[in-house]
Amino acid sequence: MTVRTRSTTAVRATPGRRAGARGISRRAAAVAFLSPSMAVIGVFVAVPIALTFWISLHDWSMYTPLSEMSWRGLGNYQDLLASQEFFTALRNTVIYVLLVLVVTIPLALALGMLLYFPKNAGKGVARAALFSTYVVPTVAIAIVWGALYAPDYGPIAQAFDAVGLDAPAWLSDPGTALVSLVVFHVWQMIGYYTILVIAGLTQIPIDLYEAARIDGAGFWRQTVSVTLPLLRRTTTFIVLIAIINAIQVFDPVYILTQGGPAESTTVLSFAIQRSAFQYGLAGQASAMAFSLLLVLVAVAGVVLAAMRRRS
């Protein structure tokens, strides 16, 4: 037994060493190939997140070196839970995200199908025009929208007036300011989401539509039973990206409303910027930013889990 065992071990030893050597070599290669990208991710993602968390445990005005921060522990997080400003910003952010999702997703799906299925010559031009709003810098466009939204004398108000309607005060009214920013967001981003939908549609085999037609399915039946189910992965991706983009909205708020009027457009990203750079409360701002990160991770997890369950 002993001999045979030894013999077996001896016989297997060589391939095992080879396999081990090959494994080490593969690991080394993996490390070598992954290192650059992991280093970039580490420096630009992991370190900033860790640093933000570390700052959130301190009081810091940003005027002094990090080494002079004062330790606060979880005090900044406790302050957030008692902060009306934080919850106002959180509520505004949630409303903003929900409005964006409710409008954007159906609209992007509809526009995507309109620009994919019909055999029209102008489709390319229409797609380019739709996408162009996404390419223009937000700062420049936000200023233009500020002029468009001007109450009474702005072009949109004039158009309402021309048809005998009273125009809302848009950005000048707490009741409509956030919705006005949503309209701007949808206008700017819809082209991007539509292109994503079109990309998803190109992945659906044309045979399925032919089969559905042979079975007597009309346009709506094909949409409900073929298009939408097979676009689920694309839709999941768009929902996630739309949530993330909406949660991070900052430029138009900063340029057009500064969080007002009466805090009606103070979203989390603006509240974070204001705490850090205007109030000099970088610890509190970092606590908000880190909380936002956790919320985003949780939302992404829930969306992905829900979609996976449905699949």
């Binding site: 370190v47 900033p48 997140i49 933000t52 700052i55 990090l66 991070q248 970088a282 930013a289």
Partner: peptide, 13 residues
Amino acid sequence: MRITGVISLGAAL
């Protein structure tokens, strides 16, 4: 996480 990045980038800067 644009905002997390902004604050951390400010600190790093």
